[in-house]
Every structure is written in C-alpha cells, then in structure tokens.
Computed example of a mutant assay.
Amino acid sequence: MAMSQDFAAISAGTFVAILLVGAIELANTFGLRAALEEKTSLMFASEVKESALAIRTGTELPEEKRLAIDEALATAAQLTKQAQALLTYAVTSWLGIYVFCGTSLVAVLVWSAQKDGKPDHALAIWSILIITLSLILILVAFSARLFLSRKITIEEQRRKAAQELGIPVGEVSALVARWRRHHGFDS
C-alpha cells in the first residue's frame, strides 16, 4: 500500500466530506442542546413553579407531591447532564477530527503537489487510519444524539400520558408494564 495520485484524490475528497459532515453534525448537536433546554423548561415548568412557590412562601408540600416534584427535577437534571455530556463529547471529538483531518488533508495535498511524488506508505496508512477513526467518531456522535433525542421523546410521552390519565408521572411506566404483561406483550 502506497500513496498514489488516485488515492490522494480519494483521500482528499473523503477528508473534505468528513469536515463538512462534522460541521453539520456539530450544528445539529448544538441545536439538540438548545431544543432540550426549551423542552425541559416546558416539561418541568409546573414542578419548578410549585417548588419555587413553596420555598418562597415557606409552605410545606405534601409528601406525595414533594416526591413527585423531586423525581421530576431529578429527571430534568439527568436529561440536562446527558445533553451536556453529549455536547462535550461532540465538541471534543470534532475538534480532534478537524485537527487530524485538516492536517492529513494538507499532508496529502502537499504530497500530491510534489513533482516526483514518490510512493509514501506511511501517509497512505495514516490517511486510512484517520478516515476510519473519523467515521467511527461520526457514527458514535450521531448514535448518541439519536439516543438522547429518543430519551427526551419518551419522557415527553410519559409526562403527556400521566397528564391525560390523571396519574403521577412515576406511575406511568409501572402502568404500561402491567398493561403489556396483561395483554401478553412481555412473555
């Protein structure tokens, strides 16, 4: 395996594509973070308001209500923490991808521009490694973003079901599990 003009063109095109996908994926991750902040504040607004009002007035909440609020606020904190972890991972990963793909792209272009362009085994192997690593990081970041989006959707559905059924949010999962067992879905 050695660097050739054809392989240099393919590698350079792949590096550019990865850099473009990276910019789009990073923008989507920042968008998800902003959407999560908005959804979280809407999903948990009543609990935050009720808790703040109780603290402000010095009123003691009933135990059941306090536990429900504590659960909701813990869920909100967990979702926010996971979104921040995803954002940190994405920014760190993309920074690494940009540095390695960018420098590899420059190295490939410099090699390609040389008049004698002797085969360079190390550059060819380096290009393959960087492309492979970048693609793996892209898939992991994309999967993590999808997982978090799905988790947010499930929480929204759980809270909506609780509201429609008139039951505490914490009981929705148990109710669904009992319903699934009763109807033979969890055999």
Results as ranks from 00 to 15, higher is better:
A2D: 13
D6R: 07
S11Y: 02
A17E: 08
V21Y: 08
E25K: 05
A27D: 10
G31N: 02
G31T: 00
A35K: 05
L36N: 03
K39G: 05
S41A: 11
L42I: 15
A45Q: 04
E47I: 05
L53Y: 15
I55T: 06
T57N: 08
T59G: 05
T59W: 04
K65I: 11
L67R: 10
A68S: 09
D70V: 02
A72R: 02
A74H: 08
L79D: 01
T80I: 13
Q82P: 01
A83T: 04
A85I: 07
T88F: 15
T88Y: 12
V91D: 09
L95D: 12
I97P: 00
Y98L: 10
S104I: 04
L105A: 01
V106T: 06
S112N: 07
Q114K: 14
P119D: 02
P119S: 02
A122H: 10
A124H: 12
L129H: 13
L135I: 09
I138C: 12
A141Y: 02
F142W: 12
L146Q: 14
S149G: 04
E155N: 02
E156N: 04
Q157V: 11
R159D: 07
A161E: 15
I167W: 05
I167E: 08
P168V: 06
V172L: 01
S173G: 09
A174Q: 14
L175Q: 12
V176P: 00
R180F: 07
H182N: 13
H183E: 09
D186R: 11
D186A: 09
S187F: 11
